[in-house]
Amino acid sequence: MSAPSSGGASRDGYGAALLDLAVDERVVVLEADLGKSTKSCHFRAEYPERTVSLGIAEQNMVLVSAGLASCGKIPFASTFAIFSERAFEQVRNGVARPGLVAHFCGSHGGTHTGTDGSSAQSIEDLAIYRTIPGMTVMHPSDDISTRELTKQLLKHDFPSYTRTARNKTPRLYDDESVRKLKIGKGSILREGSDIAIFSCGVMVHKALLAAELISKEGIEVTVVDMHTIKPLDFELIDRLSKDVKGFVTVEDHSVIGGLGSAISEYVSSKNPIKVIKIGVEDKFGESGESEELLDIMGLTIERIAESCREI
């Protein structure tokens, strides 16, 4: 048994949030042999009587969550993002369709997951869960925003999927700014009048760095942490689409179906504006360090800056 790693990755925020939520007796935690990875292990250590071990059996875990939810519990179930996809139909038919409220967390999302290789690098999770009616889909950017948004799920009336990242990323919020976050509302981290970048997860920090870089060239960029992919913050998109010349979307996820797609789908019929989508270009990853993977996938500060210049 390896010890759980210390703070700094968004998955650590999930683990911390579960402990915060434990004061509510209705909260139960479900694991499929990856609690040390998704960080539900901390809840297990404190509240074993409210932690349900299901073994390596994700489909069963999803429907056990549904059964618990039907009896008044608030289940939080986690596994790797990629393995949650195995139980997609269970989430669709067993949880969302009957209108049950259970919360799923997929850790180790995206190519940022790194050395485990392509089998572990979910690049389609946000896309698939987004298609389920009534489902909330989130991908927070750092540990403390993950903690805050996960805590808000306690009073959330819809089932949810939250993707977290395996590896550490810089903190983008502090104790005060994080309290302003709200599920379904994009968070503006930087304001500029020329271009708006919408990003989620591990790429938000890179979007900020790209904005700093081209600010020196006289291009001013708004950067939005779009931690909630569904429901999408239409109000914010409407406002920005009137203010700026174009959008750039940035995500460690397939360009098919994720944040970039969600925004494009909306603005194309509402207030057409150029959208350049940066994401994984319809291909699988491989083993490597996080930064190496992001580089070969083209998820770089330079490419974000270049896309802004293009607009």
Partner: peptide, 12 residues
């Protein structure tokens, strides 16, 4: 799916 759901009810 039903037996898994039943487990959730029984656990609750």
């Amino acid at each position: 799916m039903g037996l898994s759901f039943g487990i959730g009810c029984a656990l609750s």
